[in-house]
Computed example of a mutant assay.
Amino acid sequence: MRVKAIQSGFSLLEIMVSVAIAAIALLGLGSAQLKSLQYATSSFNYTIAIVQANNAAERIWPNLCALKHGGGFNGNFKNTTLAPQIDDYSITFPANFNDDLAIEVQWPDSRLDDGLQSKLRIFAQYPTLSAAECGL
């Protein structure tokens, strides 16, 4: 008489297949986490660029009369007063000061490979002031 063996538990093949499936799923989750960190860093750089551009626009206000009536919007003013506080960012201004000033900020971002430039542009509008209003 033959006794039939009753199997209890899992076979080695079943365990290996489930480990392979779990490994593939964990690799996918790791890849998604890496992309998420790349996008978070890109968003952080964009936020810092906005802060840099707004800071430059705000630093113009104390010198507004001098810029409108005495010139002074030269390389020295741009390089000292309006320079970005973080070296990785560069700020570009128009050659001459006007009431509608375009400020462009660029930064390097090699983490994302989308081929797009990492830059933004804000437009600052200043009031028209006469020489009498400036006390000149």
Score class of each variant (00 low, 15 high):
residue 66 A to H: 06
residue 70 G to H: 02
residue 6 I to R: 00
residue 97 F to C: 05
residue 60 I to A: 07
residue 106 Q to M: 01
residue 116 L to Y: 03
residue 94 P to T: 02
residue 73 F to D: 15
residue 112 L to M: 12
residue 94 P to I: 08
residue 2 R to E: 10
residue 51 V to L: 04
residue 38 Q to G: 00
residue 92 T to V: 13
residue 97 F to V: 04
residue 123 F to E: 07
residue 47 T to Q: 14
residue 107 W to I: 02
residue 112 L to Y: 04
residue 22 A to C: 05
residue 2 R to H: 12
residue 114 D to Y: 09
residue 84 P to A: 04
residue 119 K to W: 02
residue 92 T to M: 04
residue 94 P to H: 06
residue 110 S to Y: 06
residue 62 P to I: 09
residue 3 V to P: 14
residue 97 F to D: 10
residue 107 W to K: 09
residue 34 L to N: 09
residue 99 D to C: 09
residue 97 F to Y: 15
residue 40 A to V: 02
residue 73 F to H: 12
residue 96 N to E: 15
residue 81 T to N: 09
residue 54 N to I: 03
residue 61 W to G: 12
residue 22 A to M: 09
residue 102 A to S: 15
residue 7 Q to E: 07
residue 46 Y to N: 02
residue 96 N to R: 08
residue 120 L to K: 04
residue 69 H to N: 14
residue 48 I to W: 01
residue 135 G to F: 00
residue 74 N to F: 11
residue 47 T to P: 04
residue 41 T to N: 14
residue 24 I to F: 08
residue 133 E to C: 10
residue 128 T to W: 02
residue 74 N to A: 13
residue 117 Q to G: 04
residue 16 M to Y: 05
residue 85 Q to Y: 05
residue 73 F to G: 14
residue 79 N to K: 10
residue 96 N to M: 07
residue 75 G to M: 14
residue 99 D to H: 06
residue 60 I to V: 15
residue 71 G to N: 11
residue 68 K to C: 06
residue 105 V to K: 03
residue 126 Y to H: 04
residue 79 N to D: 11
residue 109 D to C: 00
residue 13 L to N: 00
residue 28 G to K: 09
residue 10 F to W: 03
residue 135 G to I: 12
residue 38 Q to M: 09
residue 26 L to G: 10
residue 85 Q to G: 10
residue 114 D to C: 07
residue 65 C to A: 13
residue 125 Q to E: 14
residue 76 N to I: 12
residue 115 G to L: 02
residue 69 H to G: 09
residue 13 L to M: 09
residue 62 P to V: 05
residue 134 C to G: 11
residue 56 A to V: 07
residue 102 A to P: 11
residue 5 A to P: 15
residue 21 I to Y: 04
residue 119 K to T: 03
residue 50 I to D: 03
residue 43 S to I: 01
residue 59 R to M: 15
residue 25 A to M: 03
residue 102 A to G: 07
residue 3 V to A: 15
residue 11 S to A: 08
residue 44 F to W: 15
residue 92 T to E: 14
residue 90 S to G: 06
residue 97 F to E: 08
residue 64 L to M: 09
residue 124 A to L: 08
residue 23 A to C: 11
residue 19 V to S: 02
residue 59 R to W: 13
residue 128 T to G: 11
residue 128 T to A: 07
residue 55 N to F: 06
residue 5 A to Y: 12
residue 22 A to K: 00
residue 17 V to T: 03
residue 78 K to D: 05
residue 75 G to A: 15
residue 76 N to W: 01
residue 7 Q to W: 06
residue 124 A to T: 02
residue 42 S to Q: 05
residue 31 S to E: 12
residue 70 G to Q: 13
residue 47 T to E: 13
residue 16 M to A: 15
residue 38 Q to P: 02
residue 56 A to P: 05
residue 9 G to W: 07
residue 50 I to F: 05
residue 53 A to D: 10
residue 76 N to D: 13
residue 27 L to T: 07
residue 86 I to A: 06
residue 106 Q to I: 01
residue 116 L to M: 06
residue 4 K to V: 10
residue 94 P to Q: 05
residue 39 Y to N: 04
residue 15 I to R: 07
residue 48 I to F: 06
residue 100 D to A: 02
residue 11 S to L: 07
residue 79 N to S: 11
residue 109 D to V: 00
residue 60 I to Q: 10
residue 77 F to I: 05
residue 77 F to R: 08
residue 10 F to I: 01
